[in-house]
């Protein structure tokens, strides 16, 4: 009875010391720190390629994108965060052709499911790595993805 009482005390105190050993060992090993100093390391901070920061529409050097304005992304978006404003262009042959006027993207509604990027038939959309999206005004989260004066890439149907 008394023996088990004393044994219990020693055993208990022993387990406490092993626990303190873990924390103390980290205390004296400052190189195990994992904190990243965020605003300072902005330059080195590189997001991985696949990171889903926002939906973007890549443009090439001639300010051309590959969005045909088919509207599949708009249909596939579960949150209604993509709106397409289309127009009809008349090409050289005199045919009317559908093209985008504005590809509106509501970042505030987007849940990064990736369906628009995946289903786009002409690979016009891609995920961007930008992650600092904080703004003071909600309306700033609504973006127009196609750049001013951009045109459809040649050969994309």
């Amino acid at each position: 009875m008394l023996f088990s009482y004393i044994k219990g005390i020693f055993k208990g105190v022993g387990t406490l010391f092993t626990g303190m050993g873990v924390t103390t060992s980290y205390f004296f090993r400052p190189w195990t720190k994992v904190t990243q100093k965020y605003p300072e390391n902005r330059k080195e901070l590189k997001m991985v390629e696949a990171f889903k920061g926002e939906v973007t529409m890549p443009h090439n050097a001639n300010n051309e994108h590959s969005c045909t304005g088919c509207g599949i992304c708009e249909i596939n978006c579960p949150n209604g965060s993509i709106e397409l404003v289309t127009m009809f262009l008349v090409n050289e042959d005199g045919k009317k052709k559908k093209a985008i006027d504005k590809h509106i993207y509501h970042l505030g509604m987007c849940s990064m499911c990736g369906l628009c990027v995946k289903t786009c038939p002409s690979n016009a959309l891609a995920f961007g790595n930008e992650f600092e999206h904080a703004v003071f005004d909600r309306t700033k989260l609504t973006k127009v993805l196609n750049k001013e004066g951009s045109t459809l890439k040649k050969g994309v149907e």
Partner: peptide
């Protein structure tokens, strides 16, 4: 600071 060091953090800096 002490608790930050134990927890692999930097603490107030």
């Amino acid at each position: 600071r002490v608790c930050a060091f134990m927890q692999c953090r930097v603490g107030p800096n």
